[in-house]
């Protein structure tokens, strides 16, 4: 993902997750962060593809979105586990705790956006079967 998308430059990001005396804590936090960025990328693709399917009236593209949706859910579940483990094992406070909670919230929203992309794709398939192009009204 590019820096633009997640709105953090490299050094800020580093200082957010790094610098712990126990370096394995840095590792756990940055792995969590990488996974958040990955699910973000996946969801971004889903939204792009869903809207492309819509504008181009493309059933195959819509099917692709629906097929990839379980991957988003799987990511969400895995991230949930990872967050729980990190909280249980590290008991983060202050900025670390905020980072974990913020990532958790972001992931919940991303998962929801992923659902919308899938719904959009499904909708396209149903209206396409009905034979009316939305642009045709």
């Amino acid at each position: 993902m590019d820096g633009q998308w997640h709105g953090l430059n490299g050094s800020r990001l580093q200082s957010m997750v790094e610098g712990h005396t126990a370096r394995s804590f840095d590792g756990a936090l940055s792995s969590l962060h990488v996974h958040v960025i990955e699910i973000g990328g996946l969801v971004l693709d889903q939204v792009r593809e869903a809207s492309r399917a819509y504008t181009e009236w493309d059933a195959q593209c819509a099917e692709g979105v629906i097929e990839r949706e379980p991957a988003v859910n799987a990511y969400d579940a895995r991230l949930g586990e990872e967050q729980l483990t990190l909280i249980a094992r590290r008991q983060p406070v202050a900025s670390d705790l905020k980072a974990v909670i913020a990532m958790s919230r972001a992931v919940a929203e991303l998962e929801r956006i992923g659902d919308h992309a899938r719904n959009l794709a499904r909708h396209l398939l149903s209206i396409r079967t009905a034979g009316t192009h939305p642009a045709a009204g």
């Binding site: 610098g19 712990h20 005396t21 126990a22 406070v93 202050a94 900025s95 705790l97 905020k98």
Partner: peptide, 17 residues
């Protein structure tokens, strides 16, 4: 423990010391 104001406090409580 949620909004430490001094950097040294934050570094200590988050284990960055």
């Amino acid at each position: 423990f949620t909004n430490p104001q001094h950097r040294l406090t934050e570094d200590y409580i988050t284990g960055r010391f």
